[in-house]
């Protein structure tokens, strides 16, 4: 009996431990969101979103930063998608599975774990200085695409591999060539997961600071051409907060940024779920 009780007790203690650990996670997330929300919500207004900052303390809106952020990530997405998808198709479908492919995969995984500030430094040296692209949206997008490339490539490769063999065989069995099978069956089947990967990578790029501060600069400017400079929302947030100019604006920017990233992630999840429903 006593033995049984002690087992029950151990069980209960362990369970309580798990509960506390799990709750801590939720609490931390909740605390961050609530803190940013409470501090930032007062700033959010149409004026804050759609006008330029003015005055010494950058009062007013953050429109140029929103434009620069969306511009640089959008451009990075356009650069990265074809390269990453083609590379993934090659790796998953065409390459002879061997040492070379393993090396490429390892390189991609390592690239994904390079600290973003190192990528920023590289962007500064290579795109801004060596290629003379200056501080520009283009420099920023190119550097960001380095960050996104491994993520998109690996998720695309996984998505392609997840297309069942028997569906490919169905296509080959009808006299389809490899390319016909890949382009008409495999890629469309994998598309939802590929798009999800792209969106998640884009979400990461939106929140990236180190890379863009080195490559796009810090100038408050509404970029029109890819060669224009700009300041991303994250960089703006950093400057508002660290230089102590305008803390409320920093929180407002933070809140907007979080909402944008959340929207990206929810959109990706919705896409995946909708697709799962459609395929039964």
């Amino acid at each position: 009996m006593a033995r049984r009780d002690s087992k029950d007790l151990a069980n209960r203690v362990a369970l309580t431990g798990f509960w506390i650990a799990a709750l801590t996670t939720v609490f931390i997330l909740g605390a961050v969101i609530v803190y940013v929300f409470v501090n930032g919500i007062g700033e959010i207004s149409l004026e804050f979103i759609f006008t330029k900052p003015h005055g010494v303390n950058a009062e007013g809106g953050i429109w140029p930063m929103i434009v620069a952020t969306l511009y640089v990530t959008g451009l990075a997405m356009l650069i990265v998608t074809p390269i990453a998808v083609l590379a993934a198709v090659y790796l998953a479908e065409y390459a002879v599975q061997g040492q070379l492919v393993r090396t490429i995969r390892f390189a991609a995984d390592t690239l994904a774990s390079v600290p973003s500030i190192v990528m920023g430094l590289f962007g500064l040296a290579f795109f801004v200085e060596a290629l003379k692209l200056e501080f520009s949206v283009l420099s920023g997008a190119l550097a960001l695409s380095f960050l996104m490339l491994p993520i998109v490539m690996r998720t695309t490769e996984e998505a392609i591999r997840a297309v069942p063999k028997y569906i490919r065989w169905g296509s080959y069995g009808l006299g389809a060539t490899k390319w016909q099978t890949v382009s008409r069956i495999v890629l469309p089947s994998a598309a939802p997961r590929i798009i999800t990967g792209i969106i998640l990578a884009t979400g990461r790029a939106v929140g990236e600071t180190a890379v863009v501060i080195f490559t796009m600069g810090t100038m408050i400017y509404t970029p029109v051409l890819p060669t224009d400079p700009g300041r991303s929302m994250t960089v703006h947030l950093y400057q508002m907060a660290m230089e102590g100019i305008n803390l409320p604006a920093a929180f407002g920017t933070a809140l907007l940024l979080m909402v944008m990233i959340l929207a990206f992630n929810l959109f990706a999840r919705w896409l995946l779920r909708r697709n799962r429903r459609m395929q039964g």
Partner: peptide, 20 residues
């Protein structure tokens, strides 16, 4: 073999309609 497979069709154990 691509031409051959037009003449010799195949049905698999697992029904495998394409997702279309």
């Amino acid at each position: 073999p691509v031409d051959l497979r037009r003449r010799v069709g195949m049905i698999f154990q697992q029904p495998n309609p394409f997702p279309m």
